[in-house]
């Protein structure tokens, strides 16, 4: 009798352990775009949490207690790198006590180390501004680079969780194809789109991909708020041209509105990231908003 009870207890314990083993991979991503791609490729085998709220500037987070706890238990971390998260991610990782997701560990994937970056050509100033030396980190605005990231992510997940490697690879391939198809369609739609003035060079990859001229940025230098002199210079240089001013919802609208008004253009606020719980569809819908907004500009 006694041994029977012990056996059943042991069986229940084994069952419990097995159910733990079958638990989804816990993956943390810094931005919502990386989250959307990881969610799509990971499917049911992966539980994705996004650290940076999509409606906040990803440069300006703090190492909040909730982020420490997310990092504490994650099996993997996907970040952008190239300095985008340097103000807060190191502080999170230093205090999280989770060696598995530290840079250099198998559980860490840094996106900008796997795609080619557009180099920063402007000069910084020791008192103002913030130049990312490795290049522009906002790679998520290019669907082609994201297609390449899909393949990288698929391989990475396959190594973290070998039993499901085939599923990750196949979904990565499908995602890459969808992204490339989107890019092709968007190229056609964006033929003859006007030039763009951005607040920050955060959509540079999108513009470069679709041959849309970047006419200027409201920031005189990355991280420096627009100044009256700089706005005057932009007005002088752009008078008589056609274009549109685009900013993220978390970037100040006064400079954008003033410049657009002076030039007789439109000023538009467009999201830089999909919702935090988005999948690939949500990410593409965010890019589609950019395409449709630019395609219908006079």
């Amino acid at each position: 009798m006694k041994s029977n009870t012990l056996l059943s207890a042991a069986a229940a314990y084994l069952g419990l352990l097995l159910s733990f083993s079958a638990q989804a991979l816990d993956i943390l991503t810094t931005t919502a775009s990386l989250g959307a791609l990881t969610r799509e490729i990971g499917g049911d085998q992966v539980k994705v949490s996004v650290m940076a709220p999509p409606d906040r500037d990803p440069h300006d987070l703090t190492a909040k207690p909730s982020l420490l706890s997310l990092a504490r238990s994650a099996d993997g971390l996907v970040s952008i790198g190239a300095g985008l998260e340097e103000g807060w991610l190191p502080a999170v990782l230093e205090q999280a006590g989770n060696p598995r997701i530290q840079p250099g560990q198998p559980g860490a994937l840094i996106a900008t180390q796997h795609v080619e970056l557009i180099k920063e050509t402007r000069e910084g100033n020791p008192f103002f501004g913030h130049i990312h030396k490795q290049g522009n980190p906002h790679i998520h605005m290019d669907p082609v680079r994201m297609a390449s990231m899909a393949t990288t992510l698929g391989e990475w997940l396959a190594h973290l969780d070998t039993p499901h490697a085939a599923e990750y690879r196949s979904r990565a391939q499908q995602s890459a194809q969808r992204l490339l198809a989107f890019s092709q369609k968007a190229s056609a739609q964006l033929q003859g789109a006007p030039g763009v003035v951005l607040y920050h060079e955060d959509a540079l990859y999108f513009l470069t991909r679709f041959n849309i001229p970047l006419l200027g940025t409201l920031e005189p230098s990355p991280g420096v708020p627009p100044s009256a002199t700089h706005l005057q210079e932009l007005m002088q240089a752009l008078r008589g041209k056609r274009g549109v001013v685009i900013r993220a919802p978390y970037q100040a609208d006064d400079g954008a509105a003033m410049l657009a008004h002076e030039l007789g253009w439109k000023a538009v606020a467009l999201p830089m990231e999909p919702a935090a719980n988005a999948d690939l569809q949500g990410y593409l819908a965010m890019l589609e908003l950019w395409v449709s907004t630019l395609a219908k500009q006079p």
């Binding site: 084994l14 352990l17 097995l18 733990f20 083993s21 638990q23 989804a24 991979l25 816990d26 238990s73 099996d75 840079p103 250099g104 198998p106 860490a108 994937l109 840094i110 180390q113 796997h114 990288t152 391989e155 990475w156 190594h159 973290l160 969780d161 070998t162 039993p163």
Partner: peptide, 29 residues
């Protein structure tokens, strides 16, 4: 997957395939 190593150790080699791979991924940052 949070406790795969623990369960693999407890359950023996038959379940080792469930554990996180110790292999170095091809592109190690």
């Amino acid at each position: 997957m949070r406790r795969p190593l623990l369960s693999a150790a407890l359950l023996g080699s038959s379940l080792l395939s469930l554990s996180v791979q110790a292999d170095t991924p091809p592109e190690n940052d």
